[in-house]
Nucleic acid binder design. Sequence first.
DNA 1: CTTGAAATTGAAGCAGG
DNA 2: CCTGCTTCAATTTCAAG
Lengths: 162, 162
Amino acid sequence: MPKTQRVEPADLDDVDLRILRALAADGRLTNKALSTRLGLAESTCAYRVRALRDRGVITGTSVRLSLPALGYPIQAFIKVRLGSHNRAHVDKLYAALAEAPGVIQAFHVAGEDDFHLHVAVDTPEALRDFVLSHVTVHRVVRQTETQLVFELRDGAGVLPGS
Amino acid sequence: MPKTQRVEPADLDDVDLRILRALAADGRLTNKALSTRLGLAESTCAYRVRALRDRGVITGTSVRLSLPALGYPIQAFIKVRLGSHNRAHVDKLYAALAEAPGVIQAFHVAGEDDFHLHVAVDTPEALRDFVLSHVTVHRVVRQTETQLVFELRDGAGVLPGS
DNA sequence: CTTGAAATTGAAGCAGG
DNA sequence: CCTGCTTCAATTTCAAG
């Protein structure tokens, strides 16, 4: 049985939300700049940010990369449907798909499809090769459907307000 | 006519790739720690990182947030299909969908569907309300299909090697 | 493109309100 | 839960190889 980690929602006050909005937009904000913007002492601000990390609200920090600048200007969505839903097969396939080169995110979903893969490639041929070499190569895959991504926009997210 | 920004792929050497891998995993790595790991002088390392930002390879830095800890433990994919593809309608709908509260990312795709929305909500009822209030409320939307996300994994990405 | 050292700035620890 | 002060560490700058 795989682990299921329950996560209690943290109750966040207005200061927390403002910190999260600021750091989501620019994770390199210095503690000093952040404290000035919020009108807090630096030590208080550092305290709140550390608390958000300790509580698991902030899970990490990472740089955003430009896929086109890296040489991967083509993105696609690949819907994957299985012919069998034996757990061992599903788990193994999921792991293999997530580790395939070019996969940005792999979604295990309920409903018509079983997996959605968000991938980035350098050429149309590479997209075809990806599907053949990393998806349909698995016996348990019954059907795939590939949709080119015209454009991707980051949404408003879940943080309320502006 | 909307703007189309062409992006030239940057040619990255081995040092660049190692920097990108390190900062993608932990964007809070200090320049000092990064330079030590790569065996470079601090000033050299800072120079390379700044160059990657200036060239648009690194587009920013942001904290990763736990949606469950924020109180939004339910994620879903919503496939949206339109009845008309008039540009003005499509553009306006796209903007509205991306700005709807709870939307993580909005994909404009080619093929069977027109948009894929990755959303996070707090309850199943909120998911229903999202579809009714922010998606099907638009006249141009002909059909939607909502798929619950069991699990989401970050993929290997496009950076080669380990 | 890379470097080391100086000068500036930011982060962390802590006792107290 | 918040703060100011002190101490320590990191970033930036720059002339030069």
